[in-house]
Amino acid sequence: MIAVAAGTNRIDPYLIPALDGVAYGLLVFVAASGLVFCFGVANILNLAHGLLYAIGGYTAAALLDGGWVSLALALAVGVLAAAATGVLLAGLLTPVATGNHLSQALLTFGVALAGGSLLVAGFGPDNPQVQVPAALEGSVMVAGHRYAAYRLVFIVVAAVLAAALYLVVRRTRAGMLVRAAVDDPEMVACLGVSPARIRAGVLAAAGALAGAAGVLGAPIIGPGTGTADTVLLLSLVVVVLGGLGSMAGTLLAALAIGEIQTLGVALLPSAAPFLLFAAMAAVLAVRARGLAGRWRAA
């Protein structure tokens, strides 16, 4: 009994960081899954992906006023704006869509720089504050610890989003097209489906997901001058760790990142600056194809 209590006491300080890691990981999953599908389905390296999240984040900062209506409005506007930016990107990428990744990287990096500058010009250089709905501002008790209510709700919402994404990919015709395109894009074209339409659809969906993550995750990774870079970097780590086109791998990698960034830092504070990249290097050294292999869309 004493041993159990002692064990519980040892785990206790890390419970909240571990829970935070789940929230952070699910946020990274929703934000990064679009980039994974861009890469796996459309074979496009989109370095403007972080910008799509930042659009959602700035929308949240501009529209949220502590009410539920403003949250719904911010979500709608953020998702639509980021999805529209995704479609715009698809149009810009058309000439280099079948080219090498360097051309795509240069083009999308340019868009990211220009878009980031426009956001700063529009919203100012300071990191804006984000006001969550008043009902979620407080904290709740979790295993004897106070924990931010918004983060707890975010975990539920992000889990629902992840489940919805899984169902769309597995059960809908659009999801089948995505999985088929990961497998053999030429044969999908021979079914009469335009690769350009698939590309635009994937980039729009990627934008919508990143936009939703930006709005809902603004209290966790808030809008600011470095937000786009942070989200892009985390998303690229997810791509490397999770493998291309794999939803299960993406989720696993995102949760691993979340735990490394929170629980890992709590356990090894001195290693905080390089813990994430050390983990990435270790995974690559042991399993170069990522945690769940590659080319699996669910």
Binding site: M176, V182, D183, D184, M187, R296, A298
Partner: peptide, 11 residues
């Protein structure tokens, strides 16, 4: 109907 069938392996 291509050579090697090229069915979608995961579908």
């Amino acid at each position: 109907v291509p050579q090697g069938r090229r069915v979608f392996s995961r579908l």
